[in-house]
Design a protein around this nucleic acid. Structure first.
Lengths: 139, 139
DNA sequence: CTTGACCCTGTACCTTAGTACGGGGTGTAA
DNA sequence: TTACACCCCGTACTAAGGTACAGGGTCAAG
């Protein structure tokens, strides 16, 4: 039963304290229990929850979509068939995003590949650019 | 020399006409040539350009980042070493995003997999959902 | 040569996702 | 018991990414 305050949660999750209250208002996180003075009492699990929200935002989901994704996870409201259908839709969404990211990455790799391959600072790229993608260099 | 008007471009790229002017103001697309009356004249290549911007937004890049990504593609401003360094950074970004998307996808697949596997409408999922383990989150 | 669909600029407005702030209560260490 | 860092609520402000006019010019079909 180690509870943390909102300020502690904010610090540990790397967000503003006001952001947490905002997420609560938007229904992204449940209203936490309070102490007698009305202070919000969070658990350390909430740290991961907030971080997850931020990651989802980073890959192009709006808060509305994130709320929706979470409700799929939590098995709220829906019948099994609805859940399945909605989840499948979101999975396709995600697959599209991944495809687009792969394209973007390939593009950048080609860009980098166009100049000569000395002073390559990233070892991952070194392996990738050697004949991973169609990588012709016409100087 | 088949030019299209801004309205045509907007329709074909699936965005609002005002959005295109906005992108121009933000420096995401170059100022196009005009006819004597001042009408913007676009080429059909611009359709793909706009679509690319929208896709990049969809995977979590801001317009500012997109402008930056494009300048990498076009080989502006930078020395070779700078270009390489910036491109590598962006490639890592992208790899992170992909990783996060894969996690999100796995999560949804497990969610779907939790209910029984009758009436599965998507054949891709049917093959994927065999084989996933648990990862718990707070209530 | 007019009419309707289109274009121009400029400015105002809207939504999303926060941030900041005022005015007040709380908890604890000195 | 007071000082100070923390919490509460409510409201207002901000920035990004558009959208919507207003007031005017343009082009092509009838």
């Amino acid at each position: 039963m180690t509870h943390i305050t909102i300020g502690e949660l904010a610090k540990r999750a790397g967000v503003h304290l006001e952001t947490i209250r905002y997420y609560e208002r938007r229904g992204l996180i449940a209203e936490p229990p309070r102490n007698k003075a009305g202070y919000r009492l969070y658990s350390i699990l909430d740290i991961e929850h907030i971080r997850w929200i931020r990651q989802a935002q980073g890959i192009g989901f709006s808060l509305e979509e994130i709320r929706y994704l979470m409700s799929l996870r939590m098995g709220e409201v829906w019948t099994e068939a609805e859940l399945r259908q909605h989840a499948e839709e979101k999975i396709m969404d995600i697959e599209n995003k991944i495809k687009q990211l792969e394209e973007m990455k390939a593009l950048l790799i080609r860009t980098v590949g166009q100049s000569n391959e000395s002073h390559m600072s990233c070892p991952v790229l070194l392996t990738i650019t050697k004949g991973g993608e169609a990588h012709e260099q016409e100087n």
